[in-house]
């Protein structure tokens, strides 16, 4: 799945880094690093992270594979 984080909106609440720590990572207190192409086994965690973002800065595009809408 593809991930885009609007870093202009991000305020460092770090909810994503708790909920999907293999995809989103805090560097110091406020800087966020993330993996733009997350493996499928992380999709549940990424969905949790995107829903939890207090400033709704995370955009997730589910992979359009065969049999998937």
């Amino acid at each position: 799945m593809k991930i885009v984080v609007d870093l202009n909106r991000c305020q460092g609440y770090a909810q994503c880094a708790f909920l999907a720590p293999q995809v989103f990572e805090m560097h110091g207190e406020e800087a966020l690093r993330y993996t733009p192409l997350a493996p499928e086994d992380q999709s549940e965690r990424v969905r949790r992270a995107a829903a939890a973002c207090p400033v709704q800065a995370i955009l997730v595009e589910e992979e359009a594979g065969p049999g998937v809408r």
Binding site: A14, A17, F18, A20, P21, E25, M26, H27, E29, R45
Partner: peptide
């Protein structure tokens, strides 16, 4: 708050909740 966060979450303990 930062001292309390150190063993609970990022950046020091990112995997705790997961």
């Amino acid at each position: 708050r930062r001292i309390a966060m150190r063993p609970f979450g990022p950046p020091h303990t990112p995997g705790r909740v997961d």
